[in-house]
Design a protein around this nucleic acid. Structure first.
Length: 566
DNA sequence: CTGGGGAAGGGGCCC
DNA sequence: TGGGCCCCTTCCCCA
């Protein structure tokens, strides 16, 4: 009974999104559940606020502002959009509900203007791309040289999408439902509210587009400046979508729910191209929102997510979602599946799906009975090499991972970490001193007869080290005052002082205890525990674990200091 | 709380 | 250059 068999199984329904849209479109056509009516020069278009908010940054922000204003966002609204030509508005609505933009070429500019006004960036891009073949060509010939020499910095900000969009969006025109370069979507100003109904939000946004027809160019200019002004803002997943622009909102919600594999696949290979294609929309979206501020990161992202751009096999590559640096050629698609939840590799025997082919391969061993890792000391066989490794530690009795605090040893590092994260370690610490200064562990006999009078014995030093890790400097300095060198915790080394100090220890939370890396490490150096005795097959491991721990302590300390500075 | 099994995810190496 | 394979770490779950 493996978790994979009884755990959650993601069953994709590739047609769901299409069906959902189709039903919504039916509702729109029949007026069912429509809570928003768009008007343009007398024409009326019933629609749904949620759909418009999903597809249009303009409405998303507008409704977000309304709800933020306390109105709750409910009720029926009429939105006057005289600045958008009826045909263009109709086309945009059709797009919103069908993911397909159907427009005559003569109406392209109207649609472009409407898309820009409403913040439907993918449509705007597609229209601009089509129109731009002629328009931009003229502009580019005039400014080509100047751009090359003077706009380097700006191009760095924009080029990941812009530079490659030319050739790739030709393909994407058919996939217009996909998201896009949102270079001009980022941090746009909330459009003037065209709402005819009265609301607190609309009060502050009263100027109607119909009375102030927007000029797409100034709008874009403004938006671009917004992006350049603070590109980092959009890289922080925790920020509010309203603040950072809509695509982030989509990004955060779509991967888990709306990206089934293009077609049901079973045990098929997932090539890099498959990955890129299958992530197509998201990849573009991810790329569009995740332009890091640093030049290095920009380069990494540009190599990864430029829409349609053949990804340069640069390693490391930065994940546009979590910003994590992924090392290794071809590893980014693999990593991306951790965000999308896509599991293209399905077990033909039990149907369990996996994100990776190699995991499926290992899984198949359960069905074939193959256990390629036999224990040389017993009949046990294992599925994984690391299982055998763990198992061998049982035979050898080796417990190379020792808690530096309580000296409890573990065969596995993760068990040590679990031990550290729990409270058991602290409890052991608090109990130990009660056993008296000799503190000789079972069978140690190191204390002999003179443990009590020999504060420099191994155990005594160990206790000092143990305790010194968790004591505030004031307590430590009470011993020697200077704080230089290994701290002498207990100036008089009396039983009472130990007890009091360790009682204080017990009252410190673990996060507080981590704030004294210096003395902690010095304490470790004094440690004379099991590591110094007998076999230590994992001595290097223990040291490595200690180093890692030290790093963590330092990090914790940094956090602590940061908090205190606040 | 600990020991053990298993899965997920990342990185290295090789082809 | 990318995929396959392997190893490793970390986490979760169960007994």
């Amino acid at each position: 009974m493996s978790p994979g068999e009884d755990g959650l199984i993601g069953i994709p329904f590739p047609e769901h999104s299409n069906e959902l849209l189709s039903h919504l479109n039916d509702q729109r056509r029949t007026g069912l559940l429509c809570d928003l009516t768009l008007t343009s020069r007398g024409a009326r278009y019933p629609t749904h606020r949620s759909v418009m908010a999903a597809v249009s940054l303009y409405f998303r922000r507008l409704f977000g502002a309304e709800e933020g204003g306390g109105e709750g966002g409910g009720g029926f609204s009429v939105c006057q959009l005289d600045c958008v030509a009826p045909d263009a508005l109709d086309a945009l609505l059709e797009f919103a509900y069908t993911a397909t933009l159907t427009i005559p070429s003569s109406g392209m500019r109207d649609v472009l203007r409407g898309a820009q006004l409403l913040g439907i960036q993918c449509v705007a891009d597609a229209c601009r791309d089509i129109l731009g073949e002629t328009v931009e060509a003229e502009a580019e010939t005039a400014e080509e040289h100047r751009v090359q020499h003077t706009a380097t910095e700006n191009m760095v900000e924009e080029s990941p999408e812009r530079g490659s969009r030319r050739k790739t969006d030709k393909k994407k025109v058919k996939k217009i439902g996909s998201h896009h370069n949102n270079t001009s979507v980022l941090n746009p100003p909330l459009p003037a509210s065209p709402f005819s109904h009265h609301s607190p939000a609309s009060d502050s946004l009263r100027s109607l587009p119909s009375t102030q027809p927007p000029s797409p160019e100034p709008e874009v200019q403004h938006l671009n400046s917004g992006q350049n002004g603070d590109p980092r803002a959009i890289t922080e997943p925790g920020r509010g979508a309203t603040l950072n622009g809509g695509p982030l909102h989509w990004l955060q919600e779509r991967p888990r729910i709306a990206h089934p594999p293009p077609a049901p696949r079973s045990n098929d290979k997932l090539s890099e191209d498959d990955d890129i294609e299958s992530y197509g929309d998201e990849t573009m979206l991810m790329g569009s929102i995740s332009i890091p501020a640093s030049g290095v990161d920009r380069g990494a992202v540009a190599s990864v997510v430029g829409p349609g751009r053949k990804r340069k096999s640069q390693t490391p590559q930065q994940c546009p979602v979590c910003q994590k640096i992924i090392h290794g050629a071809g590893k980014l698609p693999r990593h991306m599946r951790t965000h999308t939840g896509e599991k293209p590799f399905q077990c033909s025997a039990c149907g369990v799906r996996f994100t990776r082919n190699d995991k499926l391969k290992i899984h198949m061993r359960k069905h074939t009975g193959e256990r390629p890792y036999p224990c040389p000391h017993c009949p046990a066989r294992f599925l994984h090499s690391y299982d055998l490794k763990n198992h061998l530690s049982l035979h050898s009795g080796a417990r190379p991972f020792e808690c530096p605090l309580c000296h409890k040893a573990f065969a596995r590092e993760d068990h040590l970490q679990r031990h550290r994260k729990g409270h058991s370690c602290l409890e052991v610490r608090t109990r130990r001193p009660r056993r008296g200064p000799e503190l000789g562990e079972e069978g140690r006999g190191d204390g002999g007869g003179g443990g009590r009078e020999q504060p420099n014995s191994l155990e005594s030093l160990s206790l000092q080290a143990h305790s010194s890790a968790f004591l505030p400097h004031t307590v430590l300095d009470a011993g020697n005052g200077s704080g230089a060198g290994p701290p002498l915790m207990f100036a008089g080394d009396t039983e009472r002082e130990r007890s009091l100090t360790l009682q204080a220890l017990a009252q410190l939370g673990s996060h507080r205890l981590a704030g004294y890396p210096g003395v902690f490490l010095r304490g470790l150096d004094l440690r004379g525990g099991r590591e110094a005795e007998g076999e230590d097959p994992g001595g290097t491991h223990a040291l490595a674990a200690r180093d890692r721990w030290a790093d963590e302590v330092e990090e914790d300390n940094g956090d602590e200091e940061a908090e205190e500075e606040e």
